[in-house]
Computed example of a mutant assay.
Amino acid sequence: MKKTFGARLKALFGIQTLDENFFEELEDMLIEGDLGAKTAMEVSDAVRKLAKSEKKTSVEEMQQLVKRLLQQKVRAWVPSLVPGKTNIFLILGVNGVGKTTTIAKLATYYQNRGNSVIMAAADTFRAAAIDQLELHAQRTGCRIIKHAHGSDPGAVLFDAVQSAHAKGDQLVLADTAGRMHNKENLLRELQKIDKVIKSRIEDESCYKRFLVIDATTGQNGLSQAQLFHQAIGLDAIILTKYDSAAKGGSLIQIGEKLELPIAFVGLGERYGDLREFDTDEFLDSLVGIGT
């Protein structure tokens, strides 16, 4: 079985000679762990200085040192709904990351906290996406607003917000296309949807945009976040397929370069398998603490 990044880092820290080779290997390992060359160099240099000045040599001390340096680069944030108003979560992401399942998990999460949730099938590009969302709506007991395959996604959102207002629903979860004929078409479509929502909301604090990323994709996650953030501006990231073996280093880059927090992590296939992101737990896993 292939060692996790944290286990390899821990093994490296077991080498007691903190010489030039050690720090070169640390830097290489951080790059392999998807932290990016710039961050890897900064962390390696900081470890070199602090290990010397604070006389840290044990495995545990070195792990805590790296954790401390990474702590400022990643943060958790869980959105609370604005009471008495219709809240809208726009759920974005490329195809295959588990977007529609994540919507069902979010519906379950907020329903369990006493909120009425409806789904909006605004991925009208794929007929299968509408069918999938409808199945999730039935299983979670949510209402769904949908139009025919190929119809205007903005119109679906418009109707969903109108319906939520009329029925007093607290949250609209909107699915969006993850693929179109080309990237420019997709981003234009999302920008259009974004404008429709902004024209319908009662105030800005009711509207949040989340990007769903597959935790195992590493650097791809960062490039997806950059693309969507540039197109419409994101509020937070949701991770799917999350476990200790995942390539978590890209989250450090997303936090550092885009200043985006992580809201939730998906841990399995069931609707209850959605957890609020825990920074401490993530960093402990990343650097191998407790393994």
Rank of each mutant, 00 (worst) to 15 (best):
I31W: 08
M29S: 09
E54F: 08
Q138M: 15
L70S: 13
T39L: 13
I118T: 12
T86L: 06
L135D: 15
D131W: 12
L92D: 01
V43C: 11
T101N: 11
A51P: 12
I31L: 02
T86K: 03
D131R: 10
V59H: 03
A128D: 09
Y109V: 07
E61T: 01
E60I: 07
G84V: 10
L70T: 10
L70K: 07
A37F: 05
G36F: 06
G33I: 05
H136A: 07
E134L: 14
S44K: 02
T39V: 14
L81P: 09
I88L: 15
T57G: 11
E134P: 09
T102Y: 09
L90S: 05
Q111S: 12
A122V: 00
A40F: 03
A122C: 11
Q111C: 14
A51I: 06
V82K: 08
L92W: 00
M62R: 06
N112W: 11
K56A: 06
E32P: 11
I88D: 08
A104E: 07
I103K: 08
S58E: 00
K49V: 14
A122S: 05
A37H: 02
T100Q: 12
V66P: 00
P83H: 05
I130E: 03
S44M: 11
L65K: 09
N87L: 04
V74K: 02
Q132S: 10
G36P: 06
L50Q: 15
K67W: 06
R113W: 12
M62W: 09
T101C: 09
M29W: 01
F22W: 07
E61S: 06
V97A: 08
L135T: 15
R126E: 13
A37V: 06
V117P: 04
V94I: 14
T108S: 11
V47T: 03
R68F: 08
L135M: 15
A127Y: 08
V43N: 04
F89C: 02
E32W: 05
V82C: 11
A40R: 03
K105N: 05
A40P: 01
F89Q: 01
G141I: 09
G96R: 04
L106N: 09
D131M: 11
Q138L: 15
I103H: 01
A46G: 10
T39Q: 04
F125K: 04
P83L: 00
L50H: 13
K56C: 01
L50A: 13
P79Q: 05
N115Q: 01
A46P: 03
